[in-house]
């Protein structure tokens, strides 16, 4: 049964990489317009959760519902068509395409996406280098491009995997500003992030993942009360 107000529901989700059982019945829901952060130690199953939602990890059991529709029956290319965008941990910028080609690669799936020029105004670095090969960009610019190309598609849910990993503080700050802007535009964001100090500036709610399960779920207002426990669980 759909949970009231839930846009995306994950229920008792199990997933395997070959013989390795990675998700052990994780359950949580994402509400429309919120920023939900999946936090947990390395190897807890956060990235696998995103990959299982999208269907990149096909060996999975449990329920994934988006607006009440069962996503487990939807082919991999059908997920984006429902307005779910994905920014992978490795960024996935294509070496054989220019920056401009990378930007317009994902098809527009819904109305309301940003125009190319609007995106270039938001990311002036990309505008300057639109004719460059995608992988010639710096790590931070590649991350911006990976986010930018989803903004064009009109997706209203974005699954972001470790957007600040390996980036300089000034770039992390810039990415934070962009995500705040997306929040303000009403985008629903699921953020997997090791950098807890980055996530806490953005998240409305948190799901703590450990050994492939959601062991806690709480709102931003409860964060202070939870900090001592989190420090022990996450080492922050």
């Amino acid at each position: 049964m759909p949970i009231d107000g839930a846009l995306l529901e994950i229920e008792d989700l199990n997933a395997w990489y070959g013989e390795s059982h990675v998700l052990h019945g994780i359950s949580f829901e994402v509400r429309e317009g919120e920023t939900l952060s999946l936090i947990g130690r390395n190897g807890a199953g956060k990235t696998t959760t995103l990959r299982a939602i999208l269907g990149i990890v096909r060996n999975r059991q449990g329920a994934i519902r988006f607006r009440g529709e069962d996503l487990t029956a939807v082919p991999l290319h059908g997920i984006a068509r429902r307005g779910i965008g994905y920014v992978p941990e490795e960024r996935g910028i294509f070496a054989s395409l220019t920056v401009a080609e990378n930007l317009v690669l994902p098809p527009v799936v819904k109305d309301g996406g940003m125009g190319e020029e609007e995106i270039y105004r938001l990311f002036p670095n990309l505008a300057e280098r639109r004719a460059s090969q995608g992988t010639k960009l710096s790590g931070g610019e590649q991350q911006m491009l990976a986010i930018a190309r989803i903004l064009r598609t009109g997706a209203n849910v974005i699954l972001l995997d470790e957007p600040t990993e390996g980036l300089a503080p000034v770039i992390v700050e810039r990415i934070g500003e962009v995500l705040k802007l997306l929040k303000a535009r009403g985008m629903t964001i699921v953020l997997v992030e090791q950098n807890f100090h980055f996530a806490r500036k953005l998240a409305d709610r948190y799901v703590v993942v450990e050994h492939g399960r959601a062991i806690d779920c709480f709102g931003a207002s409860e964060l202070d009360a939870k900090m001592a426990g989190l420090a022990e669980q996450l080492g922050v």
Partner: peptide, 9 residues
């Protein structure tokens, strides 16, 4: 795989 996540068959 990534191209499929963009909605391309």
């Amino acid at each position: 795989v990534l191209v499929q996540t963009f909605g391309i068959n």
